[in-house]
Simulated assay, not measured.
Amino acid sequence: MKLCAVQLASRKGDVAGNLARHLRCIEQAADLGAELVVFPELSLTGYEPTLARQLALPVSSERLTPLQAACDRLGISVAAGLPLPTLQGVRIGMPILRPGQPVLAYAKQRLHDDELPFFSAGDEPLVFSIRQLQVAPAICYESMFIEHAVQAHSMGAQLYLVSVAKTAKGVREGHEHYPEVARSLGMPVLMANCVGPSDTFIGAGGSAAWDRQGNLLAALDERQEGLIVLDTTRETASGLPLDTRAE
């Protein structure tokens, strides 16, 4: 099975423009044979905590209809990033859209201190299936705690799907931590990070894939948009530039 992580420069608060770019990325991933594509944290709005409340959308929003239509047409599943409104407050969400199935909604369970004024923490772990593969989503800060991955593994997860918005320091720490997750749990890790301006920092890329032994299979650089395609059957991965010809 092929899975794809998209390294993307989302545009601040531009949901319509970001959605159009997501659709082009999904088309490219599907052309490469991917059955699941993951985007960076809050990819549909950009990682912009101060705008999250006004940009939050429920997973039932008609604005996500084009994503569902692409999933249905291409037979691909999509894990995107979006602030989600709940009775407990706005959450850092990951809508997971699948062909012909209801949308799943995962929310970040462990927040960084500087996120607390803007978001509330999720309270439900999630493992979902893509064919026979059991996938556990993780969003940035929480993925740096081995306990999160251990819980996912105990629920049957076979792959750790990580969506982040990380600085250069965060990427370095991630590239140290995620191989240990893979080695200790025997579970490949696929990570998608952003590039370009986000909130008060610069997204530092480094999107990557590690096999179940913790070997780095492929990684992107710190500046360019692109794709990481992980083949879980062959345990290989490759990095590719993002096709921007339609933009």
Score class of each variant (00 low, 15 high):
Asp31His: 08
Pro241Lys: 04
Ala56Asp: 08
Gly33Gln: 03
Ile96Leu: 10
Val6Ala: 15
Leu55Phe: 09
Leu82Cys: 03
Ile202Thr: 12
Leu74Gln: 03
Gln134Pro: 10
Glu222Cys: 01
Met1Leu: 10
Leu23Met: 10
Ala34Met: 06
His177Cys: 03
Leu126Gln: 05
Ala80Tyr: 09
Lys2Thr: 03
Gln68Tyr: 05
Leu227Met: 12
Leu32Asn: 15
Gln88Arg: 08
Ser154Met: 05
Leu23Trp: 11
Pro179Trp: 05
Asn193Cys: 13
Gly170Asn: 04
Ala208Glu: 13
Ile92Pro: 00
Ala70Trp: 05
Val150Ser: 03
Gly174Ser: 09
Glu225Asn: 06
Arg11Met: 03
Phe119Cys: 05
Ala237Ile: 07
Ser61Lys: 09
Phe145Asn: 10
Gly17Arg: 10
Leu44Lys: 05
Val181Lys: 06
Gly174Asp: 04
Asn215Tyr: 12
Leu217Cys: 10
Gln7Gly: 13
Ala165Asn: 08
Gln109Arg: 14
Gln132Ser: 15
Cys71Tyr: 05
Asp211Asn: 15
Asp72Ser: 11
Phe118Asp: 01
Asp31Leu: 12
Asn215Phe: 12
Val181Asn: 05
Arg223His: 15
Val59Asp: 05
Gln109Glu: 06
Leu82Phe: 05
Pro49Phe: 03
Gly13Phe: 07
Ala30Phe: 02
Arg63Glu: 04
Ala80Cys: 11
Leu242Phe: 10
Ala34Glu: 08
Met94Lys: 06
Tyr160Cys: 12
Met94Cys: 14
Lys169Gln: 00
Pro179Ser: 02
Leu161Met: 09
Glu222Leu: 00
Val78Cys: 14
Pro125Trp: 03
Arg212Gln: 12
Leu97Tyr: 12
Leu67Ala: 08
Asp123His: 02
Pro125Cys: 07
Leu64His: 06
Glu41Asn: 07
Val189His: 13
Asp123Ser: 07
Val78Thr: 14
Arg53His: 11
Glu48Pro: 13
Leu230Lys: 07
Lys108Pro: 02
Gly186Ile: 07
Ser143Arg: 02
Thr233Asn: 14
Gly239Ala: 15
Ser154Val: 01
Glu147His: 04
Gly206Thr: 04
Gln7Pro: 15
Glu225Tyr: 06
Glu147Cys: 01
Val127Pro: 01
Phe145Pro: 00
Gly122Arg: 04
Thr244Gly: 01
Ser77Thr: 06
Arg73Ala: 13
Gly170Asp: 06
His112Tyr: 04
Pro125Ala: 11
Ala56Gly: 08
Ala70Lys: 12
Pro117Asn: 05
Leu44Cys: 06
Asp123Ala: 06
Ser60Arg: 11
Glu41Pro: 00
Leu55Thr: 06
Cys4His: 12
His175Phe: 15
Asp221Met: 11
Pro125Gln: 06
Arg223Lys: 13
Arg63Val: 09
Gln158Asn: 03
Asp31Pro: 00
Glu48Leu: 10
Met94Val: 09
Leu51Cys: 01
Tyr106Gln: 00
Pro83Tyr: 04
Leu19Ser: 13
Val59Tyr: 01
Leu133Pro: 12
Gly186Tyr: 07
Ala121Asp: 05
Pro85Gly: 00
Leu126Ala: 04
Asp14Arg: 14
Glu247Lys: 00
Val150Tyr: 02
Ala34Lys: 03
Glu222Gly: 00
Ala9Arg: 15
Glu35Met: 12
Ala16Phe: 13
Gly93Arg: 01
Asp31Glu: 14
Asp113Arg: 13
Leu159Met: 07
Leu3Pro: 02
Ala29Met: 07
Ala246Leu: 11
Glu41Met: 09
Ala105Ser: 14
Gly81Ala: 13
Val162Tyr: 02
